[in-house]
Nucleic acid binder design. Sequence first.
DNA 1: AACGCCTTTACGGAAAACCGTAAGGAAATG
DNA 2: CATTTCCTTACGGTTTTCCGTAAAGGCGTT
Lengths: 222, 222
Amino acid sequence: MFKKILIAEDIDSIQTSVISQLDQLTHAEIHHAKYCDEAYLKVKKALLDEEPYDLLITDLSFKQDHRDTVLESGEDLIRSVKETQPELKVIAYSIEDRSYKIKALFEECGINGYVSKGREGSKELEKAVLALAGSTENYVAAPLSNIFQANNIIEIEEYDLKLIKYLSIGLTQDEIGAKFKKQGNVPSSNSSIEKRINKLKLYFKAKNTIHLISNAKDLGLI
Amino acid sequence: MFKKILIAEDIDSIQTSVISQLDQLTHAEIHHAKYCDEAYLKVKKALLDEEPYDLLITDLSFKQDHRDTVLESGEDLIRSVKETQPELKVIAYSIEDRSYKIKALFEECGINGYVSKGREGSKELEKAVLALAGSTENYVAAPLSNIFQANNIIEIEEYDLKLIKYLSIGLTQDEIGAKFKKQGNVPSSNSSIEKRINKLKLYFKAKNTIHLISNAKDLGLI
DNA sequence: AACGCCTTTACGGAAAACCGTAAGGAAATG
DNA sequence: CATTTCCTTACGGTTTTCCGTAAAGGCGTT
């Protein structure tokens, strides 16, 4: 079982309940942080002191407030932590339930478990902690376990995402082309960008570009 | 002080912590519900039994799951509850922090207090409960209390909202004009619609219509 | 009735997006 | 090496949007 756990979560109501729950479950040493930066520093410090954490449970979205922060999201935190201490196991505990997002967390951030906050969230969290404690396998809660069956996952590349993002901030197709050229990103011709937007419109069943961006926002792509 | 409190919240981690907190604070009889429908039925039943609740604390967004539900959001719940038992005090406890949304909750749903989930959420919740217990005034947490100073509130009419919505579902300006004409909605000429979109673009500092819709989505207008 | 003020509508030209087709080039296949 | 295939780019014509200007109509004031 885990010996030293860090919980990163800004909503205090959730934090207190998770702490007391894990305290009973694991008898581990439990610390907590309300900011990503704070969490990262704690991980780093613990490592230097040779008393590293062996589990990080973190939310994905943190509210902005007056503080200036370097790490702004749970995703940022996870990436930084995994660089500093790759073997540290990480469970993401978030309201997010869009499969392609969760899949990306496993594949790109290297999380070890995912639990969706919800009506049975705390039970699921316990299961995840127990599962990760006894094994080197990753853990995905049952209702989400189909996310790796690829077919229901939208195959949108980095490039498309960038394109959609640029559109959403008001750039014209010309401007986007120029931007791609400057970044050495191909294809970058007006024609290709036009074509790609067209593909995306088909894909998302959008009547025009406005509709496309609207749909992309609804799907949480941007 | 309140004697009988109902908490409507689907995330169990939050629910448990709020319950234990209020239990200590008020010594009231505390019930809870994970679905809006469930909460509404409890309010109704308690009223019929002549043991009505005197405080409802509710989240705004509830996850959809396998269940068929009538009330889908906290807003729905609040409206229904206020019809059934108008004097029941309601505190909304949500992650939402957009002022015009919160303002609408006070003005259109008749909530009595608003607390934003966050780093100091549970403290704020206590304050709100204490404030409402001792007074008939509404309670807004300090960092939000400026929301009634109107000037920073976007004055968007029904008409603009409809316009933005139509744009977001991919209608052309022509089509929107036709739609408005059919609905007997003025102005409905292409020229006027064009002008109105232009105003909105200025208002939202958008470079083009795509950008406008993108911003509107971010602001939660649609 | 005459006047200013405001909203709605109309229109024309420029810019951007939309759409189909085709040429050029690179990698893959045989 | 030739051929096919896929991807990128180019281009011309149509539609839609964008932008400025101006006319038409409603409304209250004088």
